[in-house]
């Protein structure tokens, strides 16, 4: 996984609550056996019209936001299915950070596994960021994971919380599986104890 570097990027405002994984990546695109190439289908049902052409009203089709690297969204982003195609599509589009007042649990976990930073902030602060994002391409947000801050184009800065282990993994681009395999001895000994205690499992 790539290391997560601090960056300054365009933020697309999506002031909708409950943006679910069916909206993020409709199921007709789940039939792939690969992880890449899903970016063109991100938000497909809102982004394209019935004839396949772009819906000019959708934020990511607005020239100002085509190169967005951040999404600022309403409550409960990523609710719904566990499909990791949602963060894959977001990542493939070029989004590296999503900001909301709250995230659905599985989606939140999936982000970290794919080098995406989900940031949870209180409603007033998300609102400030939303208004900043609405200004378009010239208003860039600064995302600094090291110092855990988001800064608006006007220089207003908000601190966010992030789990220290996840932060470390994002910053170093570490792969969970490799880390856990280093604990093989502990897993082995747990397994043999469990086999004694609960042999029916």
């Amino acid at each position: 996984m790539d290391k997560f570097e601090s960056f300054s990027g365009i933020a697309a405002p999506m002031p909708l609550v409950n943006i679910d994984t069916d909206m993020i990546i409709p199921k007709q695109f789940l039939k792939t056996i690969k992880r890449s190439g899903l970016g063109v289908n991100l938000f497909a049902e809102m982004r394209y019209l019935d004839d396949g052409s772009e819906n000019p009203d959708f934020v990511l089709n607005n020239p100002a936001y085509r190169n967005a690297e951040i999404i600022v969204a309403g409550d409960n982003f990523g609710c719904g299915s566990s499909r990791e195609h949602a963060p894959w599509a977001i990542k493939d589009f070029g989004i590296k950070c999503v900001i909301s007042t709250s995230f659905a649990d599985i989606f939140f976990n999936n982000c970290f596994k794919n080098g995406i930073l989900p940031i949870t902030l209180p409603e007033e602060q998300v609102e400030v960021l939303m208004r900043d994002a609405e200004k378009g391409a010239n208003a860039r947000l600064d995302i600094d994971l090291e110092n855990q801050t988001v800064t608006t184009s006007e220089g207003e800065s908000f601190h966010f919380e992030v789990d220290p282990f996840r932060k470390h993994c994002l910053l170093e681009g570490l792969d969970d599986i490799g880390l856990t395999m280093e604990k093989a001895a502990a897993i082995d000994s747990f397994e043999s104890q469990a086999a004694q205690a609960r042999p029916w499992v």
């Binding site: 992880r35 566990s82 499909r83 990791e84 963060p87 599985i106 976990n109 999936n110 596994k113 794919n114 789990d163 969970d176 599986i177 856990t180 395999m181 093989a184 897993i187 397994e191």
Partner: peptide, 21 residues
């Protein structure tokens, strides 16, 4: 019992464990 993403599916396949808070 809970749902997991594909990276976690791979993690469980490889290690039979899951990182959880």
């Amino acid at each position: 019992a809970h749902g997991i993403g594909t990276s976690e599916v791979e993690h469980v396949l490889a290690t039979q464990t899951l990182i959880q808070s």
